[in-house]
Design a protein around this nucleic acid. Sequence first.
DNA 1: AAAGACACCTGGGAGC
DNA 2: TGCTCCCAGGTGTCTT
Length: 270
Amino acid sequence: MPELPEVETTRRGLESLVVGKSIADLTIREPRLRWPVAPDLRARLLGHRIAALRRRGKYLLMDFTGGSLLVHLGMSGTLRYLPEAAAPRAHDHVDFHLAPEGWLRFNDPRRFGSLQYCADPAQHRLLRHLGPEPLDAGFDADYLVSACRGRRVAIKQHLMNGTIVAGIGNIYANEALFLAGIRPRRQAGRIGRERLAVLVTAIKSVLNDALGHGGTTLRDFVGGDGRPGYFKLSLNVYDRPEEPCPRCAHPIRKQVVGQRASYYCPRCQR
DNA sequence: AAAGACACCTGGGAGC
DNA sequence: TGCTCCCAGGTGTCTT
């Protein structure tokens, strides 16, 4: 589910509801996530105030004085705010009881998500090697040209590699490559500067568009307020095999690249 | 160093 | 209706 736009949608939806509140209690019903939830997490958070809610790539960072909780939503995770207590449903693995009021509920059917506390998120092993934020000014043509130089990997896999650029997953890699007219399998190092510059613009454009629609809900994504995202309606190629290309009407092709389903227009993308 | 395969897990949809 | 099989928004780890 959650790529950068979905995580950012979650962050924006929750920020004003949780920042400034304290952790009154923490209920861990299922600690077996991607990595086990630390047994001392409750003790660490109890009574501490949420100073900020940030995002880095696909990670949410809940800042406290002295440390941060890293939240990853994996493939199927959601983090929702509940104004009142509600009985837990399936896969409601962790509840944050907030003070003076409210609850935060982490739900994740596939349990690929994670909750990890650390003193310094910038130095955390999962964040330390992340590439630039794609919507930051530092992610530009110069950067992508140098990051692609000499690389033989497929450009789509390259974009989905978080150490190259953070937060781009399968949906938005497909969509950005469509907008840029580049085939998913093209070797990263064999794309000229001009086309990479177009790709940078396409990435920023598709991510900003998706943010404007509250992200993409394929099946189960909901933001912090429980509402789905509507960018699915704007997807040009993702999960549309054999449908006509919106630009030229040629049938969209599905092809596995790096073990991930990829979709492109063989006429518009070269 | 880089690229590829595999692992983790549940649920939904397709096909029979 | 019910069974089996395949696939899914991610990414760390192990193997070539």
